[in-house]
Simulated scan of single mutants.
Amino acid sequence: MPTTTEVETPAALMRRDGYMKPEEAAEDLGCGVRWLLDGLNRHGFPHTRMGKAKWLSEQDRIAIRELCHVPAQPGKISQLRRRSTSTKRLKSTA
Rank of each mutant, 00 (worst) to 15 (best):
residue 37 L to R: 07
residue 65 R to I: 05
residue 55 W to E: 14
residue 65 R to W: 03
residue 57 S to T: 15
residue 60 D to I: 13
residue 41 N to D: 14
residue 54 K to Q: 13
residue 66 E to Y: 05
residue 47 H to C: 15
residue 27 E to Y: 04
residue 64 I to N: 04
residue 46 P to E: 06
residue 29 L to E: 05
residue 65 R to S: 11
residue 39 G to T: 13
residue 38 D to S: 02
residue 51 G to W: 02
residue 25 A to H: 04
residue 56 L to H: 10
residue 52 K to F: 00
residue 55 W to G: 12
residue 43 H to G: 10
residue 49 R to E: 12
residue 45 F to D: 15
residue 59 Q to C: 07
residue 66 E to P: 08
residue 23 E to A: 10
residue 28 D to E: 06
residue 54 K to E: 07
residue 41 N to F: 06
residue 37 L to W: 00
residue 36 L to W: 01
residue 62 I to F: 00
residue 33 V to G: 04
residue 37 L to H: 04
residue 25 A to F: 00
residue 39 G to Y: 05
residue 56 L to K: 02
residue 34 R to F: 00
residue 46 P to K: 09
residue 61 R to Q: 15
residue 64 I to F: 05
residue 42 R to C: 03
residue 35 W to F: 04
residue 28 D to T: 11
residue 46 P to S: 09
residue 54 K to H: 11
residue 62 I to K: 13
residue 48 T to I: 02
residue 41 N to M: 04
residue 41 N to H: 09
residue 59 Q to P: 13
residue 39 G to A: 04
residue 39 G to Q: 06
residue 44 G to Y: 10
residue 52 K to L: 05
residue 61 R to G: 15
residue 44 G to L: 07
residue 32 G to M: 01
residue 50 M to D: 08
residue 52 K to T: 09
residue 65 R to N: 09
residue 64 I to P: 11
residue 32 G to I: 00
residue 28 D to N: 02
residue 42 R to I: 07
residue 32 G to F: 00
residue 65 R to C: 09
residue 25 A to L: 01
residue 26 A to S: 10
residue 55 W to Q: 14
residue 60 D to R: 08
residue 56 L to D: 08
residue 61 R to W: 08
residue 46 P to N: 11
residue 58 E to T: 13
residue 65 R to G: 08
residue 48 T to C: 01
residue 48 T to H: 03
residue 27 E to R: 13
residue 47 H to W: 02
residue 38 D to H: 01
residue 55 W to N: 12
residue 34 R to E: 10
residue 52 K to N: 10
residue 48 T to L: 04
residue 27 E to F: 03
residue 55 W to A: 05
residue 33 V to D: 07
residue 66 E to T: 13
residue 29 L to Q: 02
residue 64 I to T: 06
residue 60 D to H: 15
residue 58 E to A: 07
residue 25 A to P: 06
residue 66 E to F: 05
residue 49 R to L: 08
residue 61 R to T: 14
residue 66 E to I: 13
residue 47 H to S: 15
residue 54 K to A: 14
residue 52 K to M: 02
residue 55 W to L: 15
residue 57 S to W: 11
residue 35 W to P: 00
residue 43 H to C: 14
residue 23 E to C: 02
residue 49 R to N: 11
